[in-house]
């Protein structure tokens, strides 16, 4: 049986800076990394592999250079990877993305039963947290988001018990397999690839599925299959380095000024 981890290669947004003069995004030199949430999805799938003998499969939709990221997954211990890459997949919103990923999982499940699909809670570039639910809904899998602990997987009974982390509470949930789980960053600590595994991954073959192979209706994928359109992108206003008042002599006043700023910028609510 398979555990499928869905991962995405993203620009390292923490390295993206706004040019203070022009207000434009400085992207030069920003590397692509494996989405920091997806690393934990990958790790969790590997733990399930170790614990329950599931075959860890990693899939990713993206440009051809996503291969680099998939090799990192192999170095950490994934059994197989599939790269979903086609220019027809480009420009996809979450609806069109979940279409491709769900179709790929369906394809995988034709060859071998899928027990679990694991996704990161969200990506750092899009921050939507919508692709996981999209895949679950399309496949009719049980949907378990924000999971911070998989308590057990009962393969013979086709059941999984997880703990979801919500604001102010935890929910303990039992669900049937196959299920889709999105994981928080706290769910596990990451393993580090050993050198023999890295060397193996550098040589390993990466399976590529393009749309010729997938055969999806072009109206449902990529830019055409997207229900949302980006109208405009602009830089947010950001306050930088503003010293408020004379805190040394008038602490009360400085505190008041700060409070005013925080309320004005919609950061605090009273």
């Amino acid at each position: 049986m398979l555990v499928v981890a869905c991962i995405k290669q993203v620009p390292d947004t923490t390295q993206v800076k706004i040019d203070p003069d022009t207000g434009t995004l400085i992207r030069e030199g920003v590397p692509f990394i494996l989405n920091p949430f997806d690393v934990h999805a990958l790790e969790e799938s590997l733990r399930l592999k170790d614990k329950y003998g599931l075959r860890a499969t990693v899939i990713s939709m993206g440009p051809p250079n996503t291969e680099v990221t998939l090799r990192k997954a192999l170095a950490r211990g994934a059994d197989q990877t599939v790269l979903l890459s086609d220019r027809a997949f480009g420009g996809a919103d979450t609806l069109a993305t979940s279409m491709v990923l769900a179709s790929a999982i369906r394809r995988l499940s034709q060859a071998e039963e899928v027990a679990l699909v694991i996704c990161g809670q969200q990506t750092i570039d899009g921050d939507t947290a919508q692709v996981g639910p999209g895949i679950a809904t399309r496949l009719g899998y049980a949907q378990l988001t924000l999971v911070d602990c998989i308590e057990y997987v009962d393969l013979p009974a086709r059941k999984v018990k997880v703990r979801r982390k919500l604001r102010g509470r935890h929910e303990v949930i039992e669900a049937p397999l196959p299920a889709l789980i999105t994981v928080t960053r706290e769910i596990n600590r990451l393993r580090y690839p050993t050198v023999p595994m890295r060397l193996m991954a550098e040589e390993a073959a990466i399976t590529l599925w393009d749309n010729q192979k997938m055969g999806l209706d072009e109206a449902t994928i990529g830019l055409k299959g997207s229900a949302t359109q980006v109208r405009r992108i602009f830089s947010p206003e950001r306050a930088r380095g503003e010293i408020l008042g004379d805190g040394a002599n008038e602490p009360e006043k400085a505190a008041q000024l700060l409070l005013g700023k925080l309320i004005e910028k919609d950061l605090l609510y009273l």
Binding site: T14, Q15, K17, I26, G29, V30, I33
Partner: peptide, 19 residues
Amino acid sequence: STLFENMEQRSNPWGMAPA
């Protein structure tokens, strides 16, 4: 873990942006 990740990803121990 953080150190190794930062060194590999960003070639500095703190993971700061090259800029």
